[in-house]
Amino acid sequence: MIEVKQLNKSFEDKQVLFDINLQFEQGKQNLIIGQSGSGKTVLLKCLVGLFTPDSGSIIFDGRNFTAMGLKEKKSIRAEIGMLFQGSALFDSMTVLDNVMFPLLMFSTLSKAEQIDRANFCIERVGLNDAHRKLPSEISGGMQKRAAIARAIALNPKYLFCDEPNSGLDPKTGVLIDHLIEEITYEFQITTIINTHDMNSVLEHGDNINFIYKGNLWWQGNKDEFLSTQNQELQEFIYATEVLKRLKPKG
């Protein structure tokens, strides 16, 4: 479980996040949703330590990340996997080398064990023939898969995903969503997903956190989601004609 308490973040004199309090649970898909520019990526980057919050605390299973020294932070980082919006694969390395990279840097496994583990991860995400290919030689969906394989190589306890299905066609997007869901349950990971994809929200929202202009505006699950009375959330959900048809009457 990850707890976020009274988190504030600003850049220069512009405040982006305001007093965020929330919890992400283990073995669940925790979603952060909100309009473009609402602060989702900034929140995620604060959580993983790429940005330093102005105030507040982030607690990983009882361990206060924000109060830690560099060494302790490293030990938490070893438990974090992250899937970036653009995959962020190392473009000079093959898929296999990408997935092996964290093992090479941080594990005490022998070379053969590293290759075994990397192969397991690559096959787990369904990329059986791409081991020797460079990221530029595979499709966007395959890149996402490779990035997931790299993110789970070190058996993370926490998995952060920034818009995992953006830039993919709906069908591939759904496949990636399912993959993340399966991995979350299979390895009991605390998964946090940034998304503005309605389909992901409606299918996978165990714990939905709606960010509005840098504030935590609404929390709930997918069953409470469609029937919300919250004005801003309604505007967010029913932005398109198609989704308006889903709106419960009354």
């Binding site: 980057k45 993983v48 330590g49 790429l50 490293k74 980082r77 070893a78 974090i80 992250m82 970036f84 919006q85 653009g86 962020a88 694969l89 190392f90 473009d91 990279f101 964290p102 840097m105 941080f106």
Partner: peptide, 17 residues
């Protein structure tokens, strides 16, 4: 620079490299 804008540098930092 390309590694920065495609978040490859962030990916390294997250891993603790």
């Amino acid at each position: 620079g390309t590694m920065r804008v495609t978040e490859q540098i962030d990916a390294l930092d997250i891993m603790g490299v």
